[in-house]
Amino acid sequence: MKNKEETNKIRQNLEAQFKGLLPSDDAPVELKEEVFNTIDTLSLIGDIVDLFTTKFSHTETAFLQMIQEPESDDEAFDFLN
């Protein structure tokens, strides 16, 4: 019983001291810009990959459909709108 009380006391003290360790300053200011630049770059790469995989194959399919069935050309490009 006494042991358990002591263990709890130690744990509480450790928690109090560790939680008291607060950052003394803000993170470097340039970090924010670097993080969001990376996010923007990755998002742009994602868009480009999307363009050359999903959208390009759709366009290609639509183009082939248009050649094969010229009457349905408007319909084939509906997905672009």
């Binding site: 002591e6 263990t7 006391k9 130690i10 003290n13 450790l14 001291q17 560790f18 008291g20 360790l21």
Partner: peptide, 13 residues
């Protein structure tokens, strides 16, 4: 355990 009971913030840093 006794030592840790008296740990202070300045010491912890």
């Amino acid at each position: 355990n006794k030592i840790l009971q008296d740990l202070k913030l300045t010491q912890l840093e």
